[in-house]
Design a protein around this nucleic acid. Structure first.
Lengths: 341, 341
DNA sequence: ATGAAAGCGCTAACAG
DNA sequence: CTGTTAGCGCTTTCAT
């Protein structure tokens, strides 16, 4: 038997019109039960698959969203992806992904390509520095949600999902202070990312509130090589006078590198130096010692981002292409005390 | 100015026909230079984006492939994904992904959905147990490449990419033997996955070749809870008489759990017990002590898989829908000796 | 070198 | 409840 490829052929087999078959298939309209049965039967018999592209061409959107992540260097992304994907599926959406950081300007390139593919919206975890492209997207009426990476000024203008990074920085530092640490270093992240600046602010304020003036010698800047560069920085600083007795890593992957360096120096964690991270990536619990960290609800952040995106898409459909006012979701975090502090 | 959405409008602006614009846009046919310029100019001016769906509807395929992974529990998947994505992009393909393991039967469900979306092919890292669905795909003329997870019998029937898992098991065990270990335990993986059986076979043969008969007490089966369950198994076995002096974990994530258990028992790695893994996931180097492991070229495996898929797609186009004979790519691996052995 | 026309497979008025 | 008709935006003969 010929492979049957269109609704029309089904129609012929059943002696009805194509519209009837269409109606049966997407159940938007009533069809006599007998006819319905016959059509369904024919569809099943023939193994017919309706062509979603045709429908999407007609309706102007493929049920697909695009997720942009910078890389997998940071393990938070797979967890966010899972959350996005789960909610997307539930709503009949498919997720395409794109890894941006490797090529500069990839964000915009991806955007252009995806728009040609009639994609319904974007979830971006990779915004870095220049966000003008993202504002342009929104201006063009394209739903966009930013996860974790965005600027304070974006609030009220763009949809975002994150934790309160200032508080996260504050709480972790405060915890270190309260457990008796005196010289607390911070391993800062990329300063073009606001979330790291916020965590840094939290760190400073927590220290000051405890009557400690932040010591510039303990404020470690992310080296040019990225987080791996912290390996050498730690090795150096620990041998100098005035070495820290605690290190606040502004992300778990940084903490991993730092712990590696400490181990190689035979420095005992947490006795000599406490280490705390932010993220609670799955592996943090398996480190030696298990890493104390501020747990971000990563999967949930992905889910929320997708829900917000869905809301935008729906609103847009109902309001003649207009986007709803931006939503800024801030999720709660937990301080997870383990053995590294 | 009205947002311009179709080739026809561009045509009007330039006083040419839609076909001409089409020809300019995809450069398949000659167009007078003057006309070409004019059209290109109009396109740029108007910010027009050709609708890929329309083209795809016409041509019967969206330049998109689907990548199925079981979950992110195992960190090898993000690395494979990166490889796939890189090559896909280079060839103008978009990657959609689907995480299967969570729902049973998800593989087939995804398959059906994706076929409706006119997807060009699949890369599957999640085949588990029953592969009949995958054979059906191939029978229906759909390009499919399996990465890592497949059965010996599939060779010659399905396209695959992997390392030589038997050798990987053999080499790691042999290394342990040669470094003087006497009682080498193996933490087996899911027995429905051939790759783990192969690694196990390699383990047994390496022992026998060294004149050691595998001891059933040292052959640890993956517990019902998945790899996390090894935590308790290790805790128990290490306290019993005849405890192992080395453990061969058939994947790095298992090694992480096992190391965690050993640390909690205050057992020193590698002095008391050596641990070796397979994968070389990025984090293996950061463990304490850094994990000795068989390095799979994960990203490269993803790249190769995508290349093979591309070859299938092309062959199919040139041969009236017929698929090429299956290709079985076996990539080399390296034993990476670090401090856990 | 370019235009006219047909059609990819589906949906959505509009009739009846 | 169902059929007819007219496209969605693009590509592709077939003419010219």
């Amino acid at each position: 038997m010929e492979q049957i490829t269109s609704i029309k052929e089904i129609a012929q087999i059943c002696g009805v019109s194509a519209s009837t078959v269409s109606r049966v298939l997407n159940g938007k309209s009533y069809v006599r039960e007998g006819t319905r049965k016959r059509v369904l039967e024919a569809v099943k018999q023939s193994g017919f698959r309706p062509n979603l592209l045709a429908r999407s061409l007609k309706q102007g959107n493929l049920q697909t969203i695009c997720l942009m992540v910078p890389s997998y260097g940071n393990l938070i992304f797979p967890e966010i992806m899972r959350g996005v994907n789960t909610v997307a599926r539930e709503h009949g959406y498919t997720t395409v992904f794109s890894i941006t950081e490797e090529h500069p300007g990839a964000e915009e390139a991806t955007y252009n390509e995806m728009r040609n593919r009639q994609i319904s919206g974007f979830i971006i975890c990779s915004a870095i520095g220049d966000e003008s492209a993202i504002y342009r997207m929104r201006e063009e009426g394209v739903p966009v949600v930013l996860v974790n990476r965005f600027k304070k000024e974006d609030i009220g203008h763009l949809d975002t999902v994150s934790v309160d990074n200032y508080r996260a920085g504050y709480v972790s530092t405060q915890y270190l202070v309260r457990s008796g640490r005196q010289r607390i270093a911070i391993a800062c992240g990329d300063p073009s990312l606001d979330l790291y600046n916020e965590r840094y602010r939290g760190y400073c304020d927590a220290l000051r509130d405890a009557g400690i003036e932040p010591d510039p010698a303990l404020i470690l800047q992310e080296p040019a090589e990225g987080q791996d560069g912290y390996y050498n920085i730690i090795k150096r600083i620990m041998l100098e006078p005035g070495a820290p007795d605690a290190i606040f890593a502004t992300s778990d992957p940084k903490a991993f590198v730092i712990m590696r360096a400490l181990h190689d120096l035979k420095i005992c964690i947490p006795r000599d130096v406490a280490v705390i991270g932010i993220d609670n990536v799955e592996l943090s619990a398996y480190m030696e010692p298990p890493l104390t960290t501020v747990a971000q609800p990563l999967t949930r952040m992905g889910e929320e981002a997708m829900r917000i995106l869905l809301r935008q898409i729906e609103y847009k459909r109902e309001h003649d292409g207009e986007l709803p006012p931006p939503e800024n979701r801030i999720l709660p975090f937990d301080l997870l005390v383990r053995q590294s502090t």
